[in-house]
Design a protein around this nucleic acid. Sequence first.
DNA 1: TCATCAGTTGAACAACCGCTCAACTACGAA
DNA 2: TTCGTAGTTGAGCGGTTGTTCAACTGATGA
Lengths: 116, 116
Amino acid sequence: MEHPLCDCEIIHEDIVREVQSRQLDRETYISLATLFKLFGDATRVRILHALEQHEMCVCDLAALLGVTKSAVSHQLKSLRLSRLVKYRRDGQNAYYSLADDHVKKILDLGFEHFFE
Amino acid sequence: MEHPLCDCEIIHEDIVREVQSRQLDRETYISLATLFKLFGDATRVRILHALEQHEMCVCDLAALLGVTKSAVSHQLKSLRLSRLVKYRRDGQNAYYSLADDHVKKILDLGFEHFFE
DNA sequence: TCATCAGTTGAACAACCGCTCAACTACGAA
DNA sequence: TTCGTAGTTGAGCGGTTGTTCAACTGATGA
């Protein structure tokens, strides 16, 4: 049993071994954390919650949330790169909407955590 | 329609007004973001995933994850304060486990997002 | 063609966050 | 009581992150 940085002995070796055998790739945990990190900012949550109800353009989102277009655009870029939102262009406007209903499910589960 | 910081005009006033009427308290979004933020770190996700399988003490977690007791303890404190994990003391050991299965549900939904 | 406006981008800054380190508490064994 | 070990804590650091600012692109309409 490897524990290079751990500054202590293993107490319950059987349990540690069992849990270790069910551990997933380190990459998987990083991906998972990266996903949840996107839900870990109030502005982004507000954007996602708004898009849950309606496709919206950057300008309207900025007005709705009371922040600059630039701030919204930066956040939308993060959300787009992680495929949580999709967008279509129509002339000068960029219309954003949720990529799939996974996003809605995750948000709802979060709301549930407080409202039950 | 208020849009103090927004550096643009509202384009679709009807949509903005409708979405605005369904907006929740700013506090709610902050709470939600704070919750998801806890899932937004690989070490914490690994801790939660381990605890999903077994109640564990700090020392074993540290050995399992290859980090110091201190690092684990700091993370467990955050998780404890937000009631995502609970713990019981038995002599020198502190045994941690998931507070309820909301945590498991959220994690599973995250895994689903990648493995489907 | 030129002005205007929606949206994007990158740099810079301040705030935040996770880890380390060292000191500490608390419990158990001798 | 004294020592050893599990666990906690606070300060400090280095890296990350969200916003602002200014400059830019690209489409529209005069």
